[in-house]
Design a protein around this nucleic acid. Structure first.
Lengths: 202, 202
DNA sequence: TAAATTATGTGATTCAAGTCACAGCCCGGC
DNA sequence: GCCGGGCTGTGACTTGAATCACATAATTTA
């Protein structure tokens, strides 16, 4: 009887989150049901803010659908992009979330977005109740660390053209979804330089 | 009798590693003794390579004393610094270690260095036998992630002068220990520009 | 100790990317 | 449909950092 409930449940939730966890470790229906209850679903429209500067950040977000940008405004008053997150990615301002500080960033939707929201308390409960979830988050964290490392090396070593081409190669599907102005702010280029890149050689 | 052994042991090992773990979770002498046996101590002279490009990387290193640099050579043939690690820091080429690939980086000692070496197998054993160690590594990983995020934002938003000043502020003790040429390669500046920074205003 | 090597400071020059300015375009709302 | 705002392309100009070139200082090593 409960089994039936799970079936209904999983039918409705063709759930990226479960897939994402199961890429790391296989789990039972019962476990996933319990895990899922630690999350709140939230829906945002294009342009909505998930986190505003100066907010305290009490959750991590698993993006079920849509696309968000994590951005930071320098003293120069310009927007810079720390990262993007699309379906199947985790995102938050970890600095604010994990160290319990006010956010210095903004998390905003580039598209209508559905996110599963995991509060700090629920995150801790989850890891306590399902120890393998700690391992899961560690895996995600290390992969994020590796991605950041690569990004740093790209910023240090690549020419504007190479940066753009590497982004194209790494995230081909994102290039169409992100305004060039924003992409430029991610790559560390001016909008104009990025635009001119299409014609130039080097 | 065994208790006595632990005492001797901990007497010899005024051990940064234990302190580092205990910043996250308190552990017993017995546990630390067992944990410690997963590590091999290695000593390096200044200039020695811990990892060379093209190596496969089978361990993470906890720096007990000394200073190392993780660097990458761009196609331009120039050295770029991914990160430094000094006493009390963990370091490796995580890309190569965690994803089991050939290293594209080099890990080299800027000073004579003593490191505790944790092989992938021992790392897995350690987490399996002491589940709280997974939490410990997760904590380290998230903090590393946050540091990388900040570094990315610095590279994107700061002027050369500001980059240097921020480094001074974050790691005052490191500035004296690192050759300016290497520091420039970390900050993403030319050696000359860094040198000139001391006089210029902006 | 002296020689060799590596680190550092500084001037002159170059050039790639930023900035400013403007025009056309696309998209969404009324 | 029309209007307004954000997005994008492109030219002209400016500039700050890289590059090149050299001299001096500091370290290593033989």
């Amino acid at each position: 009887m409960f089994t039936f409930d799970y079936k209904i449940f999983t039918l409705f939730m063709i759930d990226l989150l479960r897939n994402n966890i199961e890429d790391y470790v296989k789990i039972t229906d019962e476990d996933f049901f319990a895990i899922r209850q630690h999350f709140d679903q939230m829906d945002f429209r294009k342009g909505d803010f998930i986190i505003r500067a100066q907010d305290s950040v009490s959750a991590i977000y698993f993006i079920q659908s849509g696309l968000v940008k994590l951005s930071y405004w320098g003293q120069d008053g310009k927007e810079h992009i720390a990262s993007f997150a699309m379906e199947n990615w985790w995102e938050t301002d970890f600095n604010a979330f994990y160290l319990q500080r006010k956010s210095s960033c903004t998390l905003q939707c580039l598209e209508a977005t559905t996110a599963y929201c995991l509060s700090l308390k629920n995150y801790q409960n989850l890891c306590a109740r399902f120890p393998y979830m700690t391992g899961y988050f560690l895996d995600k964290s290390i992969r994020g660390h590796i991605a950041n490392q690569n990004r740093i090396l790209s910023l240090l070593t690549l020419s504007p053209k190479q940066k753009y081409e590497q982004f194209l190669q790494l995230y081909p599907s994102l290039v169409q979804r992100i305004p060039k102005t924003i992409l430029a702010a991610y790559l560390g280029l001016s909008r104009e330089t990025l635009s001119r890149l299409y014609r130039r050689k080097k």
